[in-house]
Design a protein around this nucleic acid. Structure first.
Lengths: 347, 347
DNA sequence: TTGAAAGCGCTACCAC
DNA sequence: GTGGTAGCGCTTTCAA
């Protein structure tokens, strides 16, 4: 065992915690000062080749792992980005998470928390992030508690809200208009001749995305002088089966000729249920979904859906954050990445 | 603006970064020492009610957000757990991630990195985590570079490997035997009378899970004196379509009476492709999958699959970590959470 | 190119 | 129950 790693730690705890060598240990081995080691690590060309070699050997010999905690405290900034999502197991958010992670790469670490779809949960995550002194924050939500907003603003760090685009972001935002997208899809259905159009979404409470989509649906109806019928609008829990049940309820209850199911895999569940019952799609009922994925394309008939650039949203969000952190941009910015209607066979 | 928050910061940067008050600011406002503020925050009952009230007011007045960086440096431990997964957008790993997050709750923060399915990627993540001085590590993988293993061992922190159970974990492990599960499913197919059984998995290279499953398939065949046929074993990329193509290749090529597709949504893709072609399942071909989810249950016919307790694995992994961190347990431990064969209509 | 000194904001430790 | 002192391991700043 190398002596540099063993002859230290003023108050070595009883447990056999072989915590790593410190920078000063490396310096001692290399015969230089700690400052020089620091420079060698963070600005290699500020050090002679010879010094560099000695230091690299010393690092290898001692198994030194730089201590970012100390670095952060001394330099007064971290390389940690905080990300809050409503849920970690939802594949839609997962796309965005991956987008963020891919852009942050190896130069930033990613602290992730889920809000459990609650504003209070988001607030708790934000507080934890600020406590860790993250250098930037991404929130997959544009609705927040007042305290969350205030904390993020006062923290003096860049933030990006993703998802439903709102007029007054805290700082930067990337996303699309759920209202416009849902309105467009509803008008698409109307254009195809459907008039008795059902609308299914997740529970609206605390869910700005679902609320906005319902609003878009209503906008489209009203534009075309179609009366909104309460019985044709459902709020349901997430899940395939849930979508299937909603479809059956709308078809066998109020009677609809088309259903637009937004959120999660509701539409896919509806289509699979129609398959199971032998209902012609379209014919007995047309089905439109949102949140396109490979699955929507592989079912029979393939689903007509809205597509949102979720992965790209993550990438752009992280990109905007980095631009600010690295001084390539300043000030607020809002980016609308839009939506697409993917026309397939279910309408 | 409160003066405590404005009359400080020796070298205030030019940019309008309103970084937060320090503990000593709070102490000054409350008329106590910094130590007392520290105690009030972390051990409320060690302080009189009166002192507590003054401090809470001071915190509110100054907008103080505790600095965990400083706390970590001084106390020599963090409340950050590191988690490496092969991918963030894969819903299977997402289950485990959510399980970990749910157990860590609000007392620990979660640093997440994806390895991009590469051992070198995992190594980079591990190094970053150790640099952040995480207090524990969870790795969704049981195959590592030698350097990864060594670093984790030397870090002197608890670690949990999840997924494919191996005889020599670094520290603790939770998961199941991919070999046994795949072997059991193959024997199940054999028991149903199938003899020309195809096997489809993701690319084996660097993927211990896929390799182990292939090995399990071969074990089952050999136990029943069935000759393994290379042409019946496929390695394919992930994805629904990929599964569909594999099915077609095996049915129209070497000719099989059953196919066992392991990994991701391969089996679902195969079933949907069979639907599209009007192939009877079973009949023309039986299909067995792995990684059960609601989707497998909603397709037609519902898929017979292996089920792994992925969410529970995350919970138990985090639980074991916490038990160690909070002194409720010591030493290595390995937990086999097993698998289930879910019998449905596709075999 | 290198080094010495002085903190970063907090907690461990000991005294009161 | 409370406070003073001395660091935690690094970087900033300035001097050599």
């Amino acid at each position: 065992m190398d002596k540099a790693a063993s002859s230290r730690r003023r108050n070595a705890p009883a447990k056999a915690n072989q915590s790593s060598a410190r920078m000063s240990d490396v310096a001692k081995i290399a015969g230089v000062s700690a400052m020089t080691v620091s420079r060698a690590i963070h600005d290699p060309k500020s050090v002679t080749l010879e010094t560099m070699n000695k230091i690299q050997q010393a690092i290898a010999a001692s198994g030194y792992v730089p201590n970012r905690i100390a670095r952060s405290l001394a330099s007064q900034h971290t390389n940690i980005v905080g990300l809050v999502v409503p849920s970690l197991r939802n594949s839609l958010f997962a796309e965005t998470i991956q987008g963020v992670a891919d852009i942050l790469g190896s130069s930033f670490d990613l602290l992730i928390a889920d809000s459990g779809y609650s504003l209070k949960g988001e607030e708790a995550a934000v507080l934890a992030f600020l406590s860790q002194r993250v250098c930037g924050i991404v929130m997959h939500n544009t609705k927040h508690t007042q305290r969350s907003r205030r904390m993020v603003q006062n923290a003096g760090i860049p933030s990006v809200e993703t998802g439903n685009l709102l007029p007054q972001p805290i700082d930067m935002s990337v996303g699309f208009s759920n209202h416009d997208a849902a309105c467009a899809m509803t008008e698409y259905l109307i254009g195809k001749g459907y008039r008795r159009i059902g609308f299914v979404s997740l529970i609206l409470r605390d869910n700005d995305r679902a609320s906005e989509r319902r609003r878009g649906y209503l906008t489209a109806l009203s534009r075309h002088r179609i009366k909104a019928v309460d019985a044709r609008m459902l709020e349901v829990p997430p899940g395939l089966r849930s979508g299937g049940m909603a479809l059956v309820q709308l078809v066998e209850g109020p009677g609809v000729d088309a259903v637009f199911l937004t959120g999660d895999v509701l539409a896919t569940g509806a289509l699979l249920e129609a398959n199971r019952r032998g209902w012609a799609v379209p014919g007995r009922v047309a089905i439109a979904g949102s949140d396109d994925s490979e699955l929507q394309e592989c079912v029979n008939p393939p689903l007509t859906t809205l597509r949102f650039p979720r992965y790209e949203i993550g990438r752009r969000a992280a990109g905007m954050l980095l631009d600010r952190l690295q001084g390539r941009s300043q000030g607020a910015a809002s980016l609308d990445l839009g939506y697409e209607i993917i026309e397939r066979g279910s309408v």
